[in-house]
Design a protein around this nucleic acid. Structure first.
Lengths: 109, 109
DNA sequence: GCCCATGTATAAGTTATTTAGGCATCACTT
DNA sequence: AAGTGATGCCTAAATAACTTATACATGGGC
């Protein structure tokens, strides 16, 4: 139905894992960072963000710890586990494979 | 949850529209063609295919007509409408925009 | 004292898929 | 003549991910 979507379904985990892999961040900062890096094309709403974070933690791919932000507020910082690194590799490979395949189709003549 | 998915959610309409834009085809042939062109990376199952075709027809982006296949069997051939061409352009632009944005994120350092 | 940005979270509803079936015809083999 | 596999259409139940809406709390600036 051609949602005016701000995300491609199923890629959010990849985006979050990749963002955290650079440096531990809290949820709010993760969403903001994804927006920045993507030139504001990708927009992670809170309704998508927090369930995704809980999902990833549930899977054991990320872990959380309450810490102070630079601005002195308490926030839940997420960092990557070893299993998370592997998962990131896997999701990245899947994305490359599938998006390349879609590229083949849309270039069809 | 990292489905071992054969599709990226939301891209099926684009794949179908693009395939039909080359030449009218019946459902079965569309799925087969997408598989071929993508080196069998993308696999369109029937449970996804037919609802999608009905959806697209409902939207007025494709239209159907029963015809004989090369092998002499009756099949429902789908072809593109004018509105469908526009929709394809739109979906294509969306895909380019979003997949490029994801590229920016996964290349983050 | 009030508002905005920051920050976390859940609930209801929508949607596209997966998985699992059912049905019919044709060509080929046994 | 019966069975099997490929072709071809279809639907239903379940699942997963997302959108939209809402709630709540704190800190800084006015």
């Amino acid at each position: 139905m051609s949602r005016p979507s701000d995300l491609i379904q199923g890629t959010l985990d990849l985006l979050i894992l990749k963002t955290i892999s650079i440096e531990p961040k809290h949820g709010w900062a993760i969403a903001k960072r994804i927006g920045q890096v993507s030139d504001d094309v990708l927009q992670v709403t809170q309704g998508a963000l927090y369930p995704a974070l809980h999902r990833l933690e549930q899977q054991g791919w990320i872990s959380s710890k309450w810490m102070k932000t630079e601005t002195g507020r308490e926030a839940k910082f997420y960092s990557m586990t070893r299993a998370g690194k592997q998962q990131l590799e896997k999701e990245l490979a899947d994305w490359q494979r599938l998006s390349h395949a879609i590229g083949l189709v849309v270039q069809m003549v």
